[in-house]
Amino acid sequence: MIQNLIDGVLTGSYLSLGAIGLTLVMHILRFANFSHAELLSLGAYAALVFDALVTALAPVLATKLGPLSLTYALLFAILISMVLTGLSAVLIDRLVFKRVREKGWELSMVFASFGMALIIRNVIGLIFGLSPELYSKDIAFAMILSRDPLILVKPDQVFVLVAALALMFVLHLILSRTTFGYALRAVAENPSLAQVNGVNLARTVMAVWLIGGSLAAVAGVFYGLSHQVIPVMGRDLVLPIFAATIVGGIGSVYGAVLGGFIVGIAGNLALVVLPSGYTPSIPFMLILIVLMIRPHGLFGEARA
C-alpha cells in the first residue's frame, strides 16, 4: 500500500511534466493535441542518441552520479534533447498545425494531431526498431526504506521526483514573477486583450511549444529511466496525460501538476484492488469521475 503510494508519486512526477505542456497548448491553441505524448517519445529517443554520442566523444563523462544509474553524459543528453524536442514542437506547429489552423476549423486540428501521432510513433519505430531500449544496462539496486512492510525505492526514482519538482518550481517562478510569465497567462486567459496590451501572439505560441516540448522531453527521459524507452510509450502515456489535464482543469498549470500526481497515485493504488491488466483503464475512470462531479477540473474555469 505505502509502496504503491510511493510508486504513484514517482509516476506522477513524469505525468505532471507531460501534462503541463499539454494543458498550455490545449488552452492557448484550443485543441486536444493527441500528438503531445509523442513528444515524450521523441525526447526519450533524442536523449538516447545523444547519450551514446556524448559518451563516445568524451568517455570520461560516462561516470555515474553517486548512487544513480544516470551519467553526466545522459545529463548533457537530456539538456540537448530538451532543446531539440522544443524546437521539433515549434517545427511541427509551423509545418502542420499552423496550416491546418489557418485552413480548417478548430476540430480539424484534433484529427491532424492524431495523424501526426501515428507518423511520429511509427517513424520512431522504423528508425530505432520496436524493441525496448534502456539508458543503462546495469541493474540499479533499490534502497530498502523499510522491511516490514517492505518498501523499496531506487535512487533514480528519487532523482526523477526531485528534478521534476525542481523544474515545476522554476516554471512556477517564471509564471508568477516575470512579465514573460504574465504574458503567457494573459494569452491563456484572453488572447486579443493580451495583444492590445503589447503581447506578440505568434511569439507566445512559439514559446508555449518550446516550453511544452522541452518539459515533454524531460518527462520522456524520466519515463525511460523508470521503465524503458519504447516506440509505443506515447500511445500508453497519452490517456494518463490527458486525464491529468482534465482532473486539474484544462489550462491550469498547477492543475496539471496536481492532476499528474493524482493520476499516477490512483493508477498505482488501483493495483491493490484490481489486477494489473486493468491499469490502462484507470485514467478513463478518473476522467469519468471528474466529469460527473466537477466537470471543469480542480482549478479549471468554464470556458466555451
Binding site: 484534433v110 486493468y278 478513463f284 469519468l288
Partner: peptide
C-alpha cells in the same frame, strides 16, 4: 451526457478513453 455540454476537447478525449477502456476490459 457527460461531455457534450463542455468544450469540444472533452468529447474527443472521453471517446478516446472509452476505446482504450473497452479494449482493456474485453481483454481482461
Amino acid at each position: 451526457l457527460l461531455t457534450l455540454r463542455l468544450r469540444h476537447d472533452y468529447l474527443a478525449i472521453a471517446t478516446f478513453g472509452v476505446a482504450v477502456a473497452f479494449e482493456n476490459l474485453m481483454r481482461n
